[in-house]
Amino acid sequence: MGVVAAVWRYPVKSMAGERLSEVTLGERGLDGDRLYAVHDADGKFGSGKNSRRFRRMPGLHAFAARYDGDVPVLTFPDGRVIRGDAAEIHAEIAAELGFPGVELAREAEIPHHDEAPVHLVTTSSLAWLAERAPGVALDERRFRANLLLDTGPAPELTEEAWVGERIRIGEVELEVLRKAVRCVMVGLPGDGLPAAPGLLKTISDTNGVTFGVQTRVVRGGTLRVGDGVHEVGCSAAHSL
């Protein structure tokens, strides 16, 4: 069914992340993924959209984060690098975003993930979208996918056919839950990608605002770039 072409982890929700050659997955998803978020004074998480849990914070997408051990290290839009355990981190983030009182916080009772622990896209779906969005720089970073699966260059929405199925990747087994709903983040510049202001509308017009799929971890383990992807079969819920 394909192989793992890239693995991405996002230490801080809505910031650019780090590319890995291997990672451990558990019930929560990739080890350390979205484990931190910028919280406002009401406890909402900084995001690209407003909802019951999230508050839109323009500018978050221009930050990047990586781990030094278990500490997130943030690169600010102007190139400054500040560790997440530095005394000044909260004030510096607040000043950069223009949101007084925000703090960088570790996940507690309420999860930081939008819909599911692991998000993936395929090379086939990127090729499909490229045909409908000519001139747009497209890769998995624009969709903040954890996994890019190389399913070949044929333009088709390959992963959508896996909804309700289980797939095995190396030691890991995932259940594909649903198609991923997109938001304004897909068109924002950042992480070396230019702005694509019409991309969300293109996705909306051609695929009902969805692209890629959301999954949960059925069996954890280590996942590596180059691991093969194999179909396991229908999930229990899907077979009912």
Rank of each mutant, 00 (worst) to 15 (best):
E92C: 06
A116N: 02
I93Y: 04
P134D: 05
T151Y: 07
R9T: 04
V118A: 04
V118C: 05
A145E: 10
M57K: 11
E109N: 13
T122W: 00
A130L: 06
P11K: 02
L138K: 11
V232F: 06
G79Y: 11
V172M: 03
A86M: 04
L174A: 04
R216M: 13
G233R: 08
D85G: 04
P72I: 03
S47R: 15
T210G: 05
R141I: 05
F76D: 04
P117T: 06
W8R: 06
V4L: 01
E159R: 05
V73S: 02
D78I: 12
S51Y: 12
C183S: 07
V225A: 06
V163P: 00
P153D: 12
E96S: 08
I93P: 00
I89A: 02
D191R: 08
V4W: 01
H238N: 12
L129K: 01
S14G: 03
F143Q: 02
A133Q: 03
R144T: 02
D205S: 11
F54T: 14
D191G: 15
T206F: 08
G135R: 01
S124A: 04
G208R: 07
G79M: 13
S47Y: 15
V121K: 03
A65K: 00
F45E: 15
V232L: 09
L60T: 06
D114P: 09
G69R: 11
H39S: 08
D40H: 08
G98H: 02
G59F: 04
L120E: 14
L193D: 10
R106D: 07
A105K: 12
V186W: 10
N50I: 09
H238K: 06
A62G: 05
L240Q: 11
S204Y: 13
P100Q: 09
R168S: 05
R52C: 03
W128Q: 06
D31E: 14
E140A: 12
E115T: 14
P11F: 00
K13T: 10
T222K: 13
H90N: 07
T202R: 15
V209F: 11
V136Y: 10
R52L: 14
V232H: 09
S21K: 11
V218H: 15
S125P: 01
V186L: 13
G26D: 10
A236P: 01
R141N: 05
P194D: 06
A16C: 07
R83K: 12
A64F: 10
F45G: 09
R132S: 05
K13D: 10
A237I: 13
A154C: 01
V181L: 07
I82V: 15
L138C: 07
C234Y: 11
G198H: 13
G101T: 00
K44G: 05
H238C: 13
M57D: 15
G32Y: 01
